[in-house]
Simulated assay, not measured.
Amino acid sequence: MHTDDDQIARAKTGDPDAWRELYRAHAGRLVVWLGTRPAGDSAVAPEDLAAEAWLVAAQRVADFAGSSEQFAGWLFGIARNLSSTTHRRSARRRTDPGLPETVELPAADEIGEADGRDWVRRALARLPPRERDVVACIDGVGLDVAATAAALGMSAVAVRVAHHRGLRRLRAASVSEEGQSVAAASSRSR
């Protein structure tokens, strides 16, 4: 059984300073992570889902038992559930035109800083959902294995395996793209 640390105990009593500290620690990472997940509905921004996750967390904080570090996994789990619900609702209502099945990834030298984020999203979108979510949690927003496992409802071993497989797939895709870029460049110079 987990016991609450001081910050969580204060948050449960409604202490605004405790909530501010939790927000500062997790809000930015939560929005970034939600931006890597398939939204399903282009009208629902990652910021909207994050705000809804914070509201749900505030309503259910009395049910949470743990430290402020474990709070991240719990909060990300709430956000994952909200994101999945939004995605399912969108699929039922067909409110989003969707993305094409194949996504062309540009060569690394063709990517500007703003386009780099889009490239990362497209690269992650090519991974199976489980691997995409794990790589986004660990490498995208810096959660540890335990928080990632809590956020995604997986065991720590499954998180490690999915992380390894996801990185291996990304490396293979990157090497494949580099080879195609070199071949295209040499054919243009002839």
Rank of each mutant, 00 (worst) to 15 (best):
T85A: 14
A79H: 01
W119D: 14
S67M: 07
E131D: 10
E21A: 15
G166E: 12
W74S: 04
T148Y: 00
G116A: 11
H26A: 11
W54K: 14
G166N: 09
L170H: 05
S67Y: 08
H87Y: 15
A172F: 01
A173L: 02
T36E: 09
A50T: 10
V61F: 11
R10H: 04
V157C: 02
P106F: 12
D139P: 01
G28V: 06
E178S: 10
A53P: 04
L55K: 07
R60H: 08
A58Y: 14
A183I: 09
G140N: 09
R122K: 08
D118K: 06
A185W: 12
Q70L: 13
F76P: 07
V159I: 03
T148W: 02
A136T: 02
I138E: 02
S42P: 04
A11V: 09
S84K: 07
L30N: 00
E101F: 09
R190I: 12
R10A: 15
A172V: 06
S90V: 12
D133R: 07
G28D: 15
T102G: 02
D41G: 03
G112Y: 05
A39R: 13
V56T: 07
W54C: 06
A79N: 00
T13H: 06
H26K: 08
G116Q: 10
W33K: 03
R10D: 10
A9I: 00
F71P: 11
L99M: 04
G40W: 08
R171K: 14
G142Y: 09
A123H: 03
A58K: 08
A123G: 02
R188A: 14
A183S: 15
V44I: 13
L127P: 01
A158L: 01
H2G: 03
